[in-house]
Design a protein around this nucleic acid. Structure first.
Length: 275
DNA sequence: AATTCGCCCTGTCGGC
DNA sequence: TGCCGACAGGGCGAAT
């Protein structure tokens, strides 16, 4: 599942390739992946415009055009593949194709079709409701202001649920949530109101560390995630708990437990993350 | 008001 | 071998 580090990696790798390219057309094979503007109207709207910038916000990647903007969300299994080759188009999982002048194209491949594309006429994508409701960028926050203004000290919800909430912090999904909680020594079901100031400071420090490391490793290719050239990231080799239920904890040797918390598969170490 | 639940969607996997 | 249910889960809208 493409989370913040995967989307950021895609943005960084894609930007040099698509910057200043002129859009020739768009083909939508799965209309339900388009939000807002009718699929058949998008082509006429964006054709002829150059891509001026690529920006990431949370798990969204935004293509700024000369007049408008395109917001992508990769859902669970979405990939953005940049290729000058014709053959990939025949892949049945390629849902949307954006072609550029010069015979190059961007493929939006997404087997499970949870991905979305939004065309924002006028280009003011920051005002789109989906973007508006996002919480701060985890890599931008500082413990001081965050502790003061953003943390719900009285909430009874689990810390796992809160970390997954995009209106609290944007960009964290199930993988980095479980990894962060493990390294923080926090049980995923701990309720938010039981965390001390020190717990929060530690948590904020660690979530940044986890995300930065994953970016450095070009993302976690646990299942579907690929870089724009189709190759794998390497952060899956560094995972401590995600996908390791039933195996031994690297830190203490205890058997990692897998349960369901906040309606998500959750792996944790009963020793390192004692309630 | 805060939180949880059901749904969308399809490939993969384990069990029989 | 093949069928079938369970599972994966981000985010929205409905329900509690």
């Amino acid at each position: 599942m493409p989370e913040l580090p995967e989307v950021e990696t895609i943005r960084r790798l894609l930007a040099p390739d698509v910057a200043n390219l002129t859009i020739a057309g768009i083909r939508v094979r799965r209309p339900q992946m388009v939000i807002g503007l009718k699929p058949r109207l998008i082509a006429g709207t964006i054709s002829g415009q150059k891509i001026t910038d690529l920006i990431r916000r949370g798990k969204y990647i935004v293509f700024e055009l000369e007049k408008d903007a395109l917001i992508f969300h990769l859902g669970m299994t979405g990939q953005l593949l940049f290729s000058s080759q014709w053959q990939n188009r025949s892949d049945k999982h390629v849902r949307i194709i954006i072609s550029f002048t010069g015979n190059r194209q961007l493929l939006f491949k997404d087997p499970r079709t949870f991905g979305k594309i939004i065309c924002v006429p006028g280009g003011d994508w920051r005002s789109h409701p989906r973007i508006q409701k996002l919480g701060p960028e985890p890599l931008d926050i500082t413990p001081g202001t965050f502790l003061k203004h953003y943390i719900p000290h009285s909430s009874h919800r689990s810390i796992k649920s809160l970390l997954l909430d995009q209106s609290f912090l944007s960009g964290i999904g199930n993988i980095y949530c479980d990894e962060t909680l493990f390294l923080s020594g926090l049980h995923p079901a701990r309720t938010v109101d039981t965390l001390s100031q020190q717990d929060w400071r530690n948590l904020i420090r660690i979530v940044k560390k986890v995300l930065q490391k994953a970016i450095k490793n070009l993302g976690t290719s646990f299942s579907d995630y690929r870089k724009p050239d189709g190759s794998l990231g390497s952060n899956q080799e560094q995972l401590q708990v995600y996908g390791r239920g039933g195996k031994e904890c690297y830190a203490c040797g205890a058997v990692l437990l897998k349960t369901s918390i906040a309606q998500r598969g959750t792996v944790y170490c009963p020793e390192c993350q004692a309630a």
